[in-house]
C-alpha cells in the first residue's frame, strides 16, 4: 500500500444526543475504508473515541455509521467512494439513541425483531428426521432472496417511516419475518402474522425503498414487506388473523 501525501479532513460526532462534530486530519491511504479512518483517529489522535466493530469483513453487521449523511457499513465502504472534496463526516446511525460518539444503541432495533416475532419457532426435535426443503420451491426461493441479513441496521437508519413513527417495526425485522413466513418448518406463523398486521406493522411501509437502495447485502426489504402486505391481507380476508 503506497501512502500519498494527501490528508482528509474528517468530522466525527463526539458526545451523546447532545454533542458536536470535531475535525481531525487523517492521512489518506489507498484502499482505505471508513472504518480504517475511525480506527486511525482512535489509535493516533484520540483514544477516547468510541465506536463499534468486530469482523472488519462485512459479516458481523456491527460497524454501521452515518457517512456523509448516508448510513453505511464502514468496514466495506471505501473512502475514495464516499469522500467529497477531501472531507468525510462520520456520525452514529440515525433513528437510534446514541450511547457515545459513533456507537448507537441498537436495543430498539432488536426489540422490534422480537415484537415482529422474527425468530424461528421449531416444530421438531433433534430426534426427528431432517425435513427436506427443495431448493427450487417458491417458498424457499423467496426466503433465500431475503436471508443474508447481517443485522447492521443500515436500512433501519435509512427508513423515514421509522423516523416518523416510533411504533414501526422497520425493514430489517419485517424482512426477517418474511423469510420465516416462507419457512415451512416454522410453527409460529399465526402469532407472527398477527404481530406484523398490528399497529406499527408492515402496512405502515411507504415502499419508498431507501432500505433496498442502501442495504449492503443487496437485500430488498421493500419487496419482502410487499409480500407480507399481500399475505396478511389475504389472511385477514380469510378470517385467519383472529
Amino acid at each position: 500500500m503506497s501512502q500519498s501525501q494527501q490528508h482528509l479532513t474528517v468530522s466525527v460526532w463526539r458526545g451523546k444526543s447532545e454533542g458536536a462534530f470535531q475535525d481531525y486530519q487523517v492521512p489518506h491511504l489507498e484502499n482505505q475504508t471508513v472504518l480504517d479512518i475511525v480506527t486511525w483517529i482512535q489509535r493516533y489522535l484520540d483514544p477516547t473515541l468510541s465506536y463499534r466493530f468486530a469482523c472488519r469483513v462485512g459479516m458481523c453487521g456491527s460497524c454501521a455509521m452515518t457517512v456523509n449523511g448516508t448510513p453505511r457499513w464502514t468496514c466495506r465502504t471505501h473512502v475514495s467512494k464516499v469522500a467529497r472534496d477531501g472531507r468525510l463526516k462520520i456520525g452514529p446511525l440515525s433513528n437510534l439513541p446514541v450511547i457515545k460518539d459513533l456507537a448507537a444503541d441498537m436495543t430498539a432495533f432488536f426489540e422490534k425483531w422480537q415484537r415482529a416475532e422474527a425468530r424461528f419457532t421449531p416444530t421438531k426435535t433433534r430426534l426427528d428426521p431432517i425435513e427436506q426443503i427443495p431448493p427450487s420451491s417458491p417458498a424457499r426461493l423467496a426466503a433465500s432472496a431475503a436471508i443474508e441479513c447481517i443485522n447492521c441496521g443500515v436500512c433501519y437508519a435509512a427508513c423515514d417511516t421509522v423516523r416518523w413513527n416510533a411504533d414501526y417495526l422497520g425493514p430489517a425485522a419485517l424482512n426477517r419475518a418474511w423469510t420465516l413466513v416462507n419457512d415451512v418448518r416454522d410453527g409460529g406463523q399465526d402469532v407472527r402474522l398477527r404481530a406484523i398486521s398490528a399497529n406499527g406493522g408492515c402496512h405502515n411501509c411507504h415502499s419508498h425503498q431507501s432500505c433496498q437502495v442502501l442495504c449492503p447485502q443487496n437485500l430488498n426489504p421493500t419487496a419482502s414487506i410487499a409480500g407480507l402486505k399481500r399475505l396478511t391481507a389475504a389472511a385477514f380476508i380469510r378470517g385467519g388473523l383472529k
Binding site: 398490528a198 399497529n199 406493522g201 402496512h203 405502515n204 402486505k229 396478511t232 391481507a233 385477514f236 380476508i237
Partner: peptide, 11 residues
Amino acid sequence: MDVRLYLAQRI
C-alpha cells in the same frame, strides 16, 4: 396503520 385500515384504504 393495521391490516384493517390498510384494506379499507385499498378497497
